[in-house]
Design a protein around this nucleic acid. Structure first.
Lengths: 136, 136
DNA sequence: ATAATTGCAAACACTTTGCACCTGT
DNA sequence: ACAGGTGCAAAGTGTTTGCAATTAT
């Protein structure tokens, strides 16, 4: 089972660059596509989806359903975050995504387990609200 | 501002019936459509969407993004549940949706507020996991 | 009678797939 | 040279819209 090798193409370089520049929020395939065309790179949206799917499969990117149910949103994963071990909270104004990787996760899990007999799975679990920067 | 009146049609009667019969879980427009055709009712999926949208606007139904980001799921709302005041937890196996309308909501809100400077909004917020009935 | 509801066809938004061509190594 | 990546066109979902026809009141 030899590792598949990756070619370092311009498209991927710039998609990654954009994901990195926006790693505190979530982006859509269309966001990436817009960014690329604004920078004069003709990258088909198919390519964007294919790369996003690849990165998601490799767990370099976390994928969430978008709030309105039409499509998905993506975030580049910081190497040290085990996103399947915490839930995420997203600001409905600025889009910033925060990782709830704090002690409170245990409390949530315990409550759901003890009071509701429910085993939490963080994959896809997302809460919405308004972050400190977006309060009036 | 006179109230618009509602006609009591067969389509709506059966859509509601199905929603009621499944009010402990969530259903898709396709689920409803399938149920209707299995029962010999030729109701166009457009009608299903229109009624679901109406019920959602009237807050008789709660609408969530589906986990995979393709489409939405709906649940008939029990009259006494203020679904915008609590979050929801959905079983990834059986689909059952539980309303976290317990004291723990205050704890979640307080934690997000104090430790993350984040004001929770329950609309669309959904957690996933496995319910007591679906554990091996 | 008339306002609400429906079906149909079309459009829309988002995503995936097949295949031929191109590119990085 | 060849595996891997890409563009394009087409198809696949899920949802909405305009309009004419139908139905509940």
């Amino acid at each position: 089972m030899a590792e598949k090798q990756n070619y370092n193409t311009n498209a991927r370089k710039y998609i990654l660059k954009y994901l990195k520049a926006n790693s505190d929020t979530t982006v859509t395939a269309a966001d990436i596509s817009d960014y690329l065309s604004k920078n004069g790179l003709n990258v088909n949206i198919t390519t964007v989806y294919r790369y996003l799917n690849k990165l998601t499969a490799e767990q370099c990117v976390v994928k969430f359903p978008s709030k309105n149910g039409s499509g998905s949103i993506y975030q580049l994963k910081q190497s040290d975050k085990a996103c399947h071990e915490h839930i995420h909270v997203k600001c409905i104004k600025c889009g910033r995504l925060i990782h709830l990787d704090c002690g409170f996760m245990t409390e949530i899990e315990n409550h759901l387990s003890k009071d509701h007999n429910f085993t939490l799975s963080c994959d896809g679990s997302i809460l919405y609200g308004i972050c400190n920067l977006c309060k009036d």
